[in-house]
């Protein structure tokens, strides 16, 4: 299908919040001319360049890989560079910052809580012994790669946290992406870190904080399926509790 380059106009409503003057957010509405190939992010950039330079939002790669541009569009968490204005026309768009995070300004949220959680799951290979360089590369079979590959595709965009009411209700919950990354390393044949990550995974705020709402996996732009990563680990966590993991010699590093 040839791209329609004729210009139409769409209404974009943006949440605005200026911490220096506002006590709570309000909405501003803009009329944005767009062509078929324009993303929601490009709509926001048009507003910033042509209509209101004070509108604040995050973005970087414009190609769904940096994870910076997450927004709520009509209440659904999306990557704004990966979502097109034409799909909303003739209706208007209501753009808000990602749910469940403190708003710093306009569409920009504070991600620090997630960074703490990411760090807590030790998202790197934990091994019993340092393998000497001379021993050569650590080979994996395609099956071993498959066990964690999907979970390693996370771009830390936080759409899943915005989609998670349990995180919204209790921000102690480690949350979808961090737990999916925890599983990504536990599932790696080169890793022996189950025990050092056990405290996080077994906690009430770990996998047991999830009630399988499942919306995180729906909104994930990288098909990471955090709900699956978390819920299959309820079995592992229970087996760890009863000492079965140790018997199966899956305990890893003490």
């Amino acid at each position: 299908m040839p791209i329609d380059t004729t210009t139409r106009t769409i209404e974009i409503e943006c949440l605005r919040y200026d911490p220096q003057t506002d006590t709570e957010p309000h909405f501003s509405s803009y009329q944005v001319p767009f062509s078929d190939d324009m993303s929601v992010l490009e709509g926001l950039q048009y507003i910033k360049d042509q209509l209101d330079g004070s509108l604040t939002f995050r973005w970087s790669c414009r190609m769904a890989i940096c994870g910076s541009c997450g927004q709520e569009v009509n209440g659904v968490p999306v990557l704004s560079c990966h979502t097109f204005l034409r799909d909303y026309f003739p209706h208007k768009l209501r753009i808000e910052p990602l749910n469940n995070f403190p708003i710093i300004r306009d569409l920009v949220i504070d991600q620090n809580d997630f960074l703490d959680k990411l760090e807590s799951v030790k998202p790197y290979l934990v091994t019993k012994l340092e393998k000497p360089l001379a021993a050569g590369p650590h080979l994996q079979t395609p099956q071993q790669l498959n066990r964690y590959y999907a979970y390693s595709q996370c771009i830390n965009c936080l759409l899943c946290y915005a989609a998670c009411p349990q995180y919204g209700l209790n921000s102690d919950f480690t949350g979808p992406a961090a737990l999916a990354l925890l599983h990504r390393y536990n599932a790696d044949s080169r890793d022996q870190g189950w025990q050092v990550r056990a405290e996080v995974i077994n906690a009430d705020a770990g996998v047991w904080g999830c009630t399988l709402v499942g919306y995180c996996s729906e909104v994930c732009p990288k098909a990471v399926d955090p709900a699956h990563a978390i819920n299959q680990n309820k079995v592992n966590s229970a087996m760890d509790f009863f000492g079965v993991l140790k018997l199966m010699n899956k305990g890893g590093t003490e």
Binding site: Y17, P19, Q20, D22, E24, P25, E96, N99, N100, P102, I103, I104, R105, V108, D110, N112, D113, L115, D116
Partner: peptide, 17 residues
């Protein structure tokens, strides 16, 4: 308290929906 510091000067006055 996060050990990560926001670079935004006004981050102290965030709004929670």
């Amino acid at each position: 308290m996060s050990r990560y510091r926001s670079t935004a000067k006004t981050a102290a006055r965030t709004y929670m929906q």
